[in-house]
């Protein structure tokens, strides 16, 4: 479950700095496409690590980290399927406040 390493996109200041729309793999121009309104957050007390969320995530953003399951928020679009499908109610959707990070 190695996550791909990503490079933050340096926003251009001049015309000459805008790339052709084909970029080095791993460059993120817009994190999570910029449209997530709420994010899934794990309750590790309740999570049994069954990986159902991993199986249903359309973006493949859930991975096993050092302290249990994690979400790659760079790619999570906030669809909420993981929270809906979790039989242990271990994932809750928390509204984003302001700019996404």
């Amino acid at each position: 479950m190695n996550r791909p390493s990503t490079v933050r996109y340096q926003y251009p200041k001049a015309l000459s700095e805008i790339p052709l729309p084909i970029a080095q793999a791993g460059v993120l121009i817009d994190i999570n496409s910029g449209f997530r309104t709420s994010r899934p957050v794990f309750d590790h007390e309740k999570c049994v690590g069954c990986m159902s969320c991993y199986a249903v995530c359309p973006e493949g953003t859930i991975y096993r980290g050092e302290s249990g399951l994690q979400v790659d928020y760079d790619f999570c679009k906030g669809c909420g399927i993981c929270a809906k499908e979790c039989r242990f109610k271990a994932i809750s959707m928390v509204p984003e406040e302001g700019e996404n990070e």
């Binding site: 729309p21 970029a23 080095q24 817009d30 496409s33 910029g34």
Partner: peptide
Amino acid sequence: DAPKSVCIGVGPEY
């Protein structure tokens, strides 16, 4: 050898 992202999506920001 040099993987690229093609047909990228860009939000309102850029």
